[in-house]
Amino acid sequence: MRLYPLDPQGAAEGTPLITGPVSLRDDSRTPRFGLKGRGTVSFLQAQGYEVPEVNRIANGLLRLGREEAVVLNHPEDLRTRWDAAAAPKGYYSWREETWAMMHLSGPHLFDLMAKICPVNLANGAFAQGEIAQTRVGYVEAITWRDDRGGPGFSVLFDIAATAFFANAVATAAGEFERETA
């Protein structure tokens, strides 16, 4: 059985995820197949993926470098196909193990992002399909617009910092809680 940090007995067990002016959702169970190194792009293209420019996301494929990408919600057999493929095909990069994945939304979403991220993520300044590799909530992170269910941002970051990240977001959102109260 696989255990993610926020699961019972996980490392971040008991850490509350805020809801209200800002809502934080744990998406760490989202399958994410990551490759890095020579052959990454050619392998993914051979599998029929459209590989976008660096720091763009298209159809759930995040291009993070010249030869680095992550496929979200990939079909189960992608790993098997990769195993079977001939090199160069990139190297497996353990993205469901290295990173936690969370989603931020809520009426104060943009105010909060301006507090916890130095990149301008405002509407107009940061488009759908763009990826920012930067710092979110005091940790190195990758973030992009994910508007399924209203405006939101998905964030990938060091899985060991799950509790830290959730707490940092909660502290930053405290200002809006107090405003609302």
Binding site: Q9, A11, A160, A163, F164, A168, T171, A172
Partner: peptide
């Protein structure tokens, strides 16, 4: 502002 000393937890932290 708010001071956040870094904190990381290994998988068996709670264990």
């Amino acid at each position: 502002g708010h001071h956040h000393p870094a904190e990381r937890r290994s998988a068996l932290h709670q264990e």
